[in-house]
């Protein structure tokens, strides 16, 4: 079952109520339970409506045409949101599970405190992507950025995976905070105490916070990269030789991991 909503001139509250009524109502539970095929929603003419997918818990698919507003998929726990357009700030804020796919760019604080699920951005993201991300009890949140990322990527990160592919999308070099040819902004991984960040550029280029170290990738990392690069290529139908070259697709990445999972243990006098 696929519902179509025209979001034109629809206030966010009305739009989200419509979505909730379609998906979170008792009928949806019945559909979910009976034949396993969950209803999906296509929303057209989205123009800045906030909180789409906020707190939704079922494994529905939501397709968005246009530009959704801030906090897309906040507190979300299950659905798959695909945006044919760009996202704004706070995509996947404190998300628990599910998937957000954005066929464009996204703004600041992408995946803030995300605990699980996956976010794929075809293009670039703004400042403070993946901050406070954490991983717990089998849940590993993943952010894959096709282009570049702004300052403070992975700040205070406590778990999960961030991958920056650095593909030469048309916007990569235009973004002001990247500064020259760097893929990510300053202070990458400041305060990081868990998780991994993979970046496809020369390690010397990357300006990190003092809590992280740059490492070469190993076999385990290659497996991770291969899996998510593959997902990225398939989701966005990208045939870029830099990443689609099978086993070698993980070449040219380096990894950032924290020195310790207790960065501030010696800060205090007892």
């Amino acid at each position: 079952m696929n519902y179509i909503i025209n979001a034109e001139k629809l206030n966010y509250r009305k739009l989200n109520l419509k979505i909730r009524n379609l998906l979170a109502g008792p009928n949806n539970n019945a559909v979910c339970g009976s034949n396993g095929t969950n209803p999906s929603i296509t929303i057209r003419n989205v123009l800045g409506q906030r909180y789409i997918g906020d707190g939704l818990e079922h494994k529905n698919s939501i397709k968005i045409y246009g530009t959704p507003g801030n906090n897309l998929g906040a507190f979300m726990d299950g659905p798959v949101i695909e945006v044919y357009g760009s996202g704004q700030d706070g995509v996947g804020n404190t998300m628990n599970s599910g998937r957000i796919i954005i066929h464009g760019d996204a703004g600041d604080i992408l995946g803030y405190s995300m605990r699980g699920g996956e976010i794929y951005i075809k293009g670039d993201i703004g400042y403070r992507g993946g901050i406070n991300m954490k991983s717990y009890s089998g849940k590993v949140p993943v952010i894959v950025v096709g282009g570049s990322a702004g300052d403070f990527l992975g700040e205070y990160m406590a778990g999960g995976i961030i991958i920056v592919l650095g593909l030469k999308g048309k916007k990569v070099l235009d973004i002001p905070f990247v500064g020259g040819k760097r893929l990510v902004g300053n202070y990458v991984g400041t305060g990081m105490h868990g998780g991994k960040i993979y970046i496809r550029e020369e390690p010397g280029q990357c300006k990190t916070g003092k809590e992280v170290r740059k490492m070469k990738i190993d076999g385990e990392d290659r497996k991770i990269l291969y899996k998510y690069i593959n997902n990225y290529s398939n989701l966005f139908d990208v045939k870029d030789e830099k990443i689609s070259n099978g086993k070698n697709s993980a070449d040219n990445f380096f990894k950032l991991i924290p020195y310790t999972h207790r960065p501030y243990g010696k800060l205090y006098a007892y």
Partner: peptide
């Protein structure tokens, strides 16, 4: 808290959103 055992639980000074 839904965080791994033994890690520091760090609440940053501001909410960055």
């Amino acid at each position: 808290r839904m965080i791994p055992k033994g890690t520091d639980a760090l609440s940053p000074a501001p909410h960055h959103d």
